[in-house]
Structures are given as structure tokens and as C-alpha cells.
Amino acid sequence: MAPTPSAGRARGADKRRRLAAAAAKVLHEQGAERTTLADIAGAAEVPVGNVYYYFKTKDDLVRAALTEHEAHLDALTAGLEELPDPRERLKALVGAWVERRDVAARYGCPTGTLAAELDKRADGDLDVAAGRVLRRLLDWSADQFRLLGAAHPDDLATTLVAGYQGMSLLANALRDPGIMTREGARLQEWIDSVARP
């Protein structure tokens, strides 16, 4: 029996999704410049020749990886929205960062490291796309501070996200996940101190 067109579309969508997820993982671990289409195809368990059917260039795969980062952030913040208190949401966000301390110590922040690398390229707009993902995190964080009635919520969000990027960078540079644990605890204490009405 021949496969139905809808089954073929579902397999195609699955391959595309696997390639995007593999791109996010491999680009995080190897960086954009060192990563090849073959690396991503191998991680996705898709024949390298099939990659071009779904993504014409490596830049298209980088865009797909950034979309994966955005989807991960959206899923994380949607889960945090289940918490009734904005203060607890912010502290749980920091907790989620600290949970990934071993990954951060090995590879840094997935979006932050990619944004820094893409910014050094002379061509394209991928650095702007990476910045949009970080902007989403800033906006969500500012909304939480705003809900708490804190003064200057946008500035507080910048401090929070900068703290995360800094602790990820240091943990990665020094290969010390303990930095994430210690600085994460400080960020949570800071959230308590600035968020009191």
C-alpha cells in the first residue's frame, strides 16, 4: 500500500523539526562557523542530501535554530506563568538557568553565545534575529517586574538578563558550573530585594 500524501507531509514535517532541533543543539555545542550541514544532518539522523530539501543554506538552519530557542523560551515562560506570583516566576526562571549549569559551563548560553558569534559576521541579519530572542526574554522579565509594581521594570529586566549572560559566560570560560549556582542564588536574593513593594 502506498503512503498517503498526509503521511508523507507528516514525515517531512518530522524531518524538518528534527533538523531544526539538531541545528540548535549542534550550533550551541560547536558554534556557527565550525558547524557543517553534515554535522546537523548526522545529529538529526537525516541523510545529508535531504537537508537541502528543507533548508537551502546553513543560514536557514541558523534561523531554524533561533526559532527553536524562541520556542524553548516560550515553553519555559508559559510554564512559569502557572506560578501565581511574579516574584516566584522570576526566581523560578533563575532556577531553570541554574539547573542547566553543567551545559552552561561547557557551552555557555545557547542564544547568547550564538548572538555574540553572529554579531562578528560582516553579512546577513542573523545577529538581529538572535537579538530578537533575547529581547523576548527581556520583555517577559520586565512584565514580571511591572506586575510587582517595581520602579524601572525595563532596567531591572536588563540587570537580570545581563546577570544570567555574565554568569553563563564566566561558567563557560572557567568551566565551573558552581558559578551558575552561586550567582543564581545572588540573583534570587536580588529579586527579593528589588521586588518588594
Score class of each variant (00 low, 15 high):
Ala2Phe: 15
Pro3Asp: 13
Pro3Trp: 15
Thr4Arg: 09
Ser6Met: 13
Gly8Trp: 14
Arg9Trp: 14
Ala10Val: 12
Arg11Tyr: 09
Arg11Met: 09
Ala13Ile: 10
Asp14Gln: 15
Arg16Trp: 11
Arg17Gly: 10
Leu19Ser: 07
Ala20Ile: 04
Ala21Phe: 10
Ala22Thr: 04
Lys25Glu: 15
Glu29Gln: 12
Glu29Val: 02
Gln30Phe: 12
Glu33Asn: 08
Arg34Thr: 10
Thr36Lys: 08
Thr36Val: 08
Leu37Gly: 15
Ala38Tyr: 14
Gly42Trp: 01
Pro47Trp: 09
Val51Tyr: 01
Val51Ala: 00
Tyr53Trp: 15
Tyr53Cys: 10
Tyr54Thr: 08
Tyr54Cys: 06
Phe55Pro: 00
Lys56Tyr: 11
Asp59Gln: 06
Val62Gln: 01
Arg63Glu: 15
Ala65Gly: 02
Leu66Ile: 08
Glu68Pro: 08
His72Tyr: 14
His72Val: 15
Leu73Tyr: 14
Leu73Ile: 14
Asp74Cys: 11
Asp74Gln: 15
Ala75Phe: 12
Ala75Thr: 14
Glu81Ala: 15
Glu81Cys: 11
Glu82Ile: 10
Arg87Pro: 06
Arg87His: 09
Arg89Lys: 07
Arg89His: 06
Arg89Glu: 03
Trp97Ile: 14
Trp97His: 13
Arg101Phe: 02
Arg106Asp: 03
Arg106Asn: 05
Tyr107Cys: 07
Tyr107Gly: 02
Gly108Glu: 00
Cys109Gln: 03
Thr111Pro: 01
Thr113His: 04
Thr113Lys: 03
Lys120Glu: 14
Asp123Tyr: 12
Gly124Pro: 05
Leu126Gly: 02
Leu126Tyr: 02
Ala130Val: 00
Gly131Val: 02
Arg132Tyr: 12
Leu137Asp: 08
Leu147Ile: 08
Leu148Ile: 05
Leu148Ser: 01
Gly149Ala: 02
His152Arg: 12
His152Val: 10
His152Cys: 09
Asp154Pro: 06
Asp155Pro: 09
Leu156Cys: 05
Leu156Ala: 05
Gly163Thr: 03
Gly163Tyr: 01
Gln165Gly: 08
Gly166Lys: 00
Met167Glu: 02
Met167Arg: 01
Ser168His: 09
Leu170Ile: 10
Leu174Lys: 13
Arg175Ile: 03
Pro177His: 02
Pro177Ile: 05
Ile179Ala: 02
Met180Arg: 00
Met180Tyr: 01
Thr181Glu: 15
Arg182Val: 08
Gly184Asp: 00
Arg186Lys: 13
Trp190His: 09
Trp190Met: 07
Trp190Leu: 09
Val194Leu: 04
Ala195Met: 07
Arg196Asn: 11
